[in-house]
């Protein structure tokens, strides 16, 4: 696929996503993730695959929470790359500071067993563990078990609206927690 078509695809997918098409949104995120991963790995080989994946997830979370700052009439790439550059720079700076300042974290990383799955990240699980138990349950249920909003509502005795609000708040809180714990 040439660049032109890919551009139009990403623009169209994200436009549909902004109009409420969850499937288009998932496709968009799946399409950009390998590109993000390439950007992060090119700079952060020393962090290892899981360390890089932490940053990829951080960027994805930022794209998600800031997607309303993209104007749907603009092409998506300049926005996407600006967000990515900002978050990746931020993430590397934060890790540099952490590694030099907090030795216990460094030790923690050294003793962690190597992860067989390169898309498995570590930071996010620590952050999810810091959420309140129900919010953590909702994020894990929908993310890892593939529950729908409706199923989650039934399981927890919540309305769909309440689940949506709780999920949105949980994702926002995850980004806040990262910001606070990584800097």
């Amino acid at each position: 696929m040439n660049r032109q078509t890919a551009d139009q695809d990403w623009d169209a997918l994200m436009r549909a996503a902004m109009a409420g098409d969850a499937r288009a949104y998932a496709r968009f995120l799946h399409a950009v993730t390998p590109v993000l991963r390439g950007v992060v790995r090119a700079r952060g080989a020393a962090l290892g695959a899981a360390g890089c994946e932490d940053i990829v997830q951080e960027v994805l979370l930022a794209i998600h929470l800031k997607r309303h700052t993209w104007r749907t009439k603009d092409p998506i790439r300049p926005w996407l790359y600006a967000i990515t550059r900002h978050k990746v720079t931020d993430a590397f700076r934060a890790r540099g500071a952490r590694l030099t300042v907090r030795v216990e974290d460094f030790a923690d990383i050294l003793v962690a067993p190597p992860d067989p799955d390169p898309t498995e990240a570590r930071d996010i699980d620590r952050m999810i563990a810091l959420l309140d138990p129900r919010a953590a349950d909702i994020v894990r249920g929908i993310g890892q078990n593939g529950d729908t909003i409706a199923q989650t509502g039934l399981r927890l005795g919540l309305t769909e609206g309440a689940v949506r609000v709780a999920l949105h708040r949980a994702l926002k809180r995850l980004a806040d927690l990262r910001e606070r714990h990584m800097t």
């Binding site: 996503a17 409420g20 969850a22 499937r23 949104y25 998932a26 995120l29 799946h30 993730t33 997830q57 994805l60 979370l61 998600h64 996010i124 994020v139 929908i142 993310g143 890892q144 593939g146 729908t148 909003i149 949506r164 999920l167 949105h168 994702l171």
Partner: peptide
Amino acid sequence: LIAALSADA
């Protein structure tokens, strides 16, 4: 994570 993100409309 992508599954969780795309559920948050």
